[in-house]
Amino acid sequence: MAEKRAPRLPDSAEPPCPCGRPEAYGACCGRLHSGERTAATAEELMRSRYSAFAVGDADYLLRSWHPGTRPRRLDLDPRMRWLRLEVIATSGGTPFHTEGTVSFRAVYDDAGREGELREDSRFLRHEGAWTYLDALA
């Protein structure tokens, strides 16, 4: 007997992607999370990593982490809710670069207390794909 699945809503009926772009998750970061395609820029990878935190996709976060700095495992706090992302600046990180930096502000809710994470993230290409390296000090 075939497995029953919930019908997939048309993209226009899906909520916008957590990354802040107007596209639906399935047409935006969901395509990167599923492996359908890879990020073309460091900013796109950063946005998809934010969305992975928002939807709880630790596997994608590990896959998109540079092997030189990747932790063995990643435990996400299920109580943490990511609310919104603001990209402040980018440097490099285009399809023509091998390195890039993205400065961002991410707002979250942790057990009813709102907070924010500000970071200047470094990205490197590894085997042709953008990867998250680390945060600048």
Rank of each mutant, 00 (worst) to 15 (best):
M1S: 15
R5S: 13
P7N: 01
L9N: 05
P10W: 09
S12Q: 07
S12W: 15
A13C: 08
P15C: 05
P16N: 00
C17D: 09
E23Y: 08
Y25V: 11
C29G: 03
L32C: 08
S34D: 13
T38Q: 13
T38E: 12
A42R: 03
E44C: 07
R47H: 12
R49E: 10
R49Y: 11
Y50S: 03
A52F: 09
F53W: 04
V55C: 05
D57C: 07
D57I: 10
A58R: 03
A58G: 06
W65F: 12
W65H: 06
G68L: 05
G68H: 01
P71F: 02
P71H: 00
R79G: 07
R79L: 11
R81K: 14
R84H: 14
L85A: 03
V87I: 15
V87Y: 11
I88W: 03
I88H: 00
A89M: 10
S91F: 07
T94M: 01
T94F: 09
T94E: 08
P95L: 01
G100W: 09
T101G: 03
V102P: 10
R105L: 15
A106G: 13
Y108I: 07
Y108C: 02
D109E: 04
A111L: 11
R113N: 03
G115C: 05
L117C: 05
G128H: 06
G128P: 12
